[in-house]
């Protein structure tokens, strides 16, 4: 669902993600000071694999909702929703994600996704993401160090 947003005081987050080695696929590694931030970073990392984010400007904002049965399931469905946002109307590539509701009791995420529709000629074509997988999925939580990390293998 498209939602209003203001470009005033709009800040892009620091990059806290990387791509790790895997035989046929690629592993996304996102981190942050909170689990929420690590999730957001992991989502942006996926878009960064599909195109080069420096060519993407923030023109629109869509809100998505994801549910899971457990924490892994929540991460899986969160990324699956983002992939869906890219694969169908509005074909959105996101440069920034902002999780506004992160409920670990009901395993629900509501997230604002900032970016613009993917456009050939404007955005370089990266690699196509076929699916999110549970393969070697890891969610590391170290509240004492304010360090949270997630690892997800995407099928490409």
């Amino acid at each position: 669902m498209e939602v209003e947003f203001s470009k005033d005081n709009f800040l892009l987050p620091d990059i806290k993600y990387e791509y790790l080695d895997h035989t046929a696929d690629v592993q996304l590694h996102g981190w942050g000071h909170s689990l929420k931030e690590a999730f957001e970073q992991c989502g942006v990392a996926m878009f960064g694999y599909m195109t080069e984010l420096e060519y993407v400007s923030v023109e629109q904002c869509y809100e998505i909702e994801a549910h899971g049965d457990d924490l892994e399931g929540l991460l899986f469905h969160f990324l699956d929703e983002l992939l869906f946002l890219f694969s169908v109307e509005p074909f959105l590539v996101c440069k920034k994600l902002e999780i506004t509701k992160f409920d670990l009791e009901t395993f629900t995420i509501v997230c604002r996704c900032y970016g613009e529709p993917f456009e050939l000629g404007k955005h370089p074509q990266g690699t196509e993401v076929k699916a999110i997988t549970y393969s070697a999925m890891q969610i590391v939580q170290k509240p004492e160090d304010a360090n949270y990390e997630v690892f997800v293998i995407i099928d490409i």
Partner: peptide, 17 residues
């Protein structure tokens, strides 16, 4: 419905990889 929505715009495309 999700699969159908993903499929519709991509019919007749080669893909990547």
């Amino acid at each position: 419905m999700r699969a159908k929505k993903r499929g519709l715009p991509q019919l007749g495309t080669l893909g990547a990889g």
